[in-house]
């Protein structure tokens, strides 16, 4: 009981101390600094510019890959290398 009362008193003292904290004044240049930062916010961040550029490059490379695969012949790749003889008789 006594311990509980003393801890309540301690917390009262702690809260009294906190209530005594005075208001402070920020620096006079803070408004100007805030305006500069606000103006900078309206410019697109470099991170997003880079991200979009990377996506565009990936997109273009993907398109190029798909397009180059489409122009390939229907035969398999080995048909270029292996000669397929024509077995038709000349005088048929």
């Amino acid at each position: 009981m006594i311990m509980k009362n003393s801890s309540n008193t301690d917390m009262k003292e702690v809260f009294e101390k906190l209530a005594n904290i005075k208001m402070a004044e920020p620096s006079e240049t803070l408004y100007a600094q805030t305006l500069i930062r606000l103006k900078r916010q309206n410019v697109i961040p470099l991170f997003w510019v880079r991200a979009v550029a990377c996506l565009l490059i990936v997109f273009i490379m993907t398109e190029f890959y798909i397009a180059s695969n489409k122009t390939n012949y229907s035969d398999n790749d080995l048909s270029i290398v292996i000669y397929k003889p024509n077995n038709l008789l000349y005088n048929e």
Binding site: P26, S27, L30, Q33, T34, R37, L38, Q41
Partner: peptide
């Protein structure tokens, strides 16, 4: 001050 700037931005 840094936080204050962030807040007002």
């Amino acid at each position: 001050e840094e936080i204050t700037q962030d807040i007002f931005v």
